[in-house]
């Protein structure tokens, strides 16, 4: 794997030429039928989801969508979902469970959209419901972090039984700019934040958040997308095969997230477990 600094990886993860959810969808799946709308009031284009075939097998695909031009980006807030997007995601995931389809999610967002209307319509509640729902889903979820994994807005699609990360994808509690602004009251120290946050794919594998890192071409996924699609195809097929052998995906997932951070508790002993 390439020897890039964390800040360089953040830049690569945000590269506008980097393949996004829509490109992975087109390359890896066939017969895609897009499911739109939250059935309450709106359709948020920042979430792309529907049913497709993966090597002939029906699956539900869900991901963050960034626009390819300014007009698209204004419509989808540069890939930052509103509550309507998360409620659409919930609807699509419930349908997946009903029809016993595995769910494949693509994570690529700077975060949930922090706007006035989004707050008025319950951004926090919408994300919380996604997490609670995924916590109990009886079909497997495979998550691929393909670009930026920013904060709760990323996690809302990211509670996979398996979490796979592209080599230059990043995943963090907040953007490096936000992190620097909160802790040092200075967003220009983002570079420094990248170094301490442990946000690279390798860091996340070490912390037990990512299960597998998928290598990229030396200068990033956008320099040879076909190679990346092939690697992701292979990793995804393997992950699905592994999950097919798991009898109770809900219990498997509960156990995975129940143990998050266990190694860092200062008083061991889990008497309530």
């Amino acid at each position: 794997m390439a020897d890039h600094s964390p800040a360089r990886r953040v830049a690569l993860a945000r590269d506008p030429g980097r393949p996004g959810t829509a490109q992975f969808l087109e390359a890896l799946f066939t017969d895609f039928f897009e499911q739109r709308g939250d059935r309450l009031c709106a359709d948020d284009p920042a979430i792309l989801g529907g049913v497709a075939l993966f090597h002939g097998r029906p699956v539900t695909v869900l991901g963050h969508r960034k626009g390819k031009n300014l007009e698209e980006n204004l419509a989808c807030h540069f890939g930052m979902p509103t509550p309507e997007g998360y409620r659409k995601a919930q609807r699509i995931m419930k349908a997946a469970e009903k029809f016993r389809r595995p769910i494949i999610t693509f994570v690529d967002t700077a975060g949930a959209y922090p706007g006035l209307e989004a707050e008025a319509r319950g951004q926090g509640e919408a994300i919380a419901r996604c997490l609670a729902l995924m916590g109990g889903l009886t079909v497997p979820i495979i998550t691929l972090v393909i670009g930026e994994g920013g904060s709760g807005g990323a996690l809302a699609l990211g509670m996979g039984n398996k979490v796979l990360m592209l080599e230059n994808a990043v995943y963090s509690v907040l953007s490096p700019e936000g992190f620097a602004s909160i802790l040092w009251k200075d967003s220009s120290r983002a570079q420094e934040a990248c170094d301490v946050m442990k946000l690279t794919a390798a860091d996340l594998q070490e912390l037990g958040v990512a299960d597998q890192v998928i290598p990229e071409p030396e200068e990033g996924a956008h320099t040879d997308p076909q190679a990346v699609f092939a690697a992701v195809d292979e990793a995804l097929s393997a992950a699905l095969r592994q999950m097919d052998r798991v009898g109770d995906p809900a219990q498997h997932r509960y156990k995975k997230y129940r143990g998050m951070g266990d190694g860092w508790l200062a008083v061991p002993g889990k008497e309530n477990k």
Partner: peptide
């Protein structure tokens, strides 16, 4: 919100607590 100093593991506590609540309510 999430505690910045503990990074991504703080974010993962959202998943951990939400799924526990779901199980309790179920």
């Amino acid at each position: 919100g999430a505690r910045m100093q503990e990074g991504i593991l703080s974010l993962m506590q959202m998943a951990k607590t939400a799924q526990a609540i779901q199980k309790f309510q179920d």
